[in-house]
């Protein structure tokens, strides 16, 4: 099994000088979307723990019920409370990250004002379905998370999240034997659906389970820094 599989071709997939909408400056913004239970909050928490010593990070959550995810992050104390903000989505988490990004933009700007020197803002969408994607007006790159227990046919079904996200994470690989999921079929279907876009498999329970995602995030930061210099 390739639990910590990192795609060697990953670095070259995203053009490093992709222009940012509106010529915006400020921290790198990465959106994390995916169905309920895929492990978005756990991934955000693990990324924060892994990167917080080297980067200045803040998180915006878009929970279906306000504050649940934000409070989970606070309980786990992955970041100081002033670096975590929750946005209400009016029972439509989808709208808040794609069709009308006003409240999320506000939250990002408030964090920038409050913290000052941010390198990275992670925007976690509310648990939604396979069609949820982020607006380019809100984020620079998006990660889509699915999990093994959600059904090994999800990569084959596709949908905008699976096919177009800048990184697809297949999470909870440790559950595969328990739920009768065929990991290699999932990975094969995902790669077929995504063309050259990267796919990683993760198991956050492992000590270094977040590494493939953290590496990818660091490379996006390096791209941004390179593009600015």
């Amino acid at each position: 099994m390739h639990l910590h599989h990192t795609d060697p071709a990953l670095t070259d997939i995203i053009p490093p000088t992709a222009p940012r909408p509106g010529g915006r400056s400020g921290p790198l913004r990465i959106g994390l979307g995916g169905p309920v239970g895929a492990g978005k909050t756990a991934t955000v928490a693990a990324l924060c723990r892994r990167l917080r010593d080297t980067l200045s990070i803040a998180v915006v959550t878009n929970d279906i019920y306000t504050r649940e995810d934000a409070e989970a992050l606070l309980r786990q104390a992955v970041l100081p409370p002033e670096r975590i903000t929750a946005v209400e989505t009016g029972a439509c988490p989808h709208t808040a990250i794609r069709d009308d990004i006003s409240a999320n933009l506000e939250a990002v700007e408030d964090l920038q004002e409050r913290i000052g020197d941010l390198d990275l803002v992670l925007i976690e969408s509310g648990g939604d379905n396979l069609t949820a994607t982020f607006s380019k007006g809100l984020i620079d790159h998006q990660i889509f998370l699915i999990d093994v227990a959600g059904g090994d046919d999800i990569p084959r079904k596709g949908g905008p999240g699976v096919t177009t996200a800048d990184l697809l994470v297949i999470n909870k690989t440790d559950l595969a034997p328990h739920v009768g999921a065929d990991l290699s079929a999932m990975e094969r279907d995902a790669r077929a659906a995504r063309g050259s876009l990267p796919v990683v498999l993760t198991c956050l329970k492992d000590q270094h389970g977040i590494e493939p995602v953290a590496d990818w995030v660091c490379r996006r930061l390096a791209d941004l820094t390179a593009a600015r210099s």
Partner: peptide
């Protein structure tokens, strides 16, 4: 109602 000014999150 789809004018993107944040109103969708207010009841």
């Amino acid at each position: 109602g789809r004018f993107p000014s944040g109103g969708h999150a207010h009841s």
